[in-house]
Measured scan of single mutants.
Amino acid sequence: HAATELTPEQAAALKPYDRIVITGRFNAIGDAVSAVSRRADEEGAASFYVVDTSEFGNSGNWRVVADVYKA
């Protein structure tokens, strides 16, 4: 099962156990969220919340930071 994305309210009520950072070329924010979901799932997380997204220069590469939560 894939890790689910939390709302800001849900994330605020929970304590993350880790923070992950992924970088890559994403065509849309949805693609980045899917990549975070896969990584969170690999780490055994039940859910995640994207904290920050930023573009690296003009290369089209993105850096996505997310907190991950157990259950």
Rank of each mutant, 00 (worst) to 15 (best):
R38N: 06
Y49C: 07
S47N: 07
A13W: 10
G30K: 14
I22H: 01
G30F: 10
Q10A: 09
A45E: 01
A45T: 02
I29Q: 08
N58L: 11
A46K: 09
V33T: 07
F56W: 11
E42T: 07
N27L: 12
T7E: 04
V21A: 05
V36R: 02
T23V: 14
P16M: 04
N61R: 10
P16E: 01
V51E: 00
K70R: 12
T4P: 03
N61E: 15
S37M: 12
A2V: 12
H1T: 09
R63V: 13
Q10E: 11
I29P: 10
F26L: 03
E55C: 10
A2M: 13
G44Q: 05
Y49D: 01
D52G: 09
I20G: 00
R25E: 08
A45S: 03
V33L: 14
I22A: 01
G24C: 07
I20P: 00
A3S: 08
F26H: 02
E9C: 13
A32P: 02
E43D: 11
V21E: 06
W62H: 03
H1Y: 09
A2D: 07
I29A: 08
F26S: 01
V36E: 02
A2K: 14
A71P: 11
A46Y: 12
Y49E: 01
A35P: 02
V21P: 00
A12F: 07
N61V: 15
V21S: 05
D31Q: 07
G24L: 06
F26C: 05
A46R: 08
I22L: 08
Y17V: 03
H1W: 08
R19T: 06
V64R: 02
E55W: 13
L14I: 07
R63M: 12
R38H: 08
G60I: 04
I20H: 01
K15I: 14
A66D: 00
G60E: 07
V21W: 05
A45G: 05
A3D: 02
S59E: 13
L6K: 01
W62R: 02
T7G: 06
G57D: 13
S59C: 08
H1C: 14
D18T: 12
A3E: 02
L6Q: 02
V21R: 02
K15R: 11
P8E: 12
A2H: 14
V64L: 07
S47C: 13
V65R: 03
Q10T: 05
R63D: 02
Y49P: 01
W62E: 02
V51Q: 03
A3C: 07
R19I: 07
N27Y: 10
R38T: 07
D41N: 15
R38Q: 11
N27A: 13
G30A: 14
S47E: 03
A12D: 06
G60T: 05
S47T: 06
A2N: 12
N58C: 11
E9V: 08
A13G: 12
A71Q: 13
A11I: 03
G24W: 04
V50P: 02
A46G: 11
A32L: 12
T53C: 15
V68T: 03
N61M: 15
F48W: 04
A40R: 02
K70M: 11
E55A: 08
L14Q: 12
S37A: 15
A46T: 14
G30Y: 10
V21Y: 08
A71I: 11
V64Q: 00
V51K: 02
T53A: 15
A13E: 12
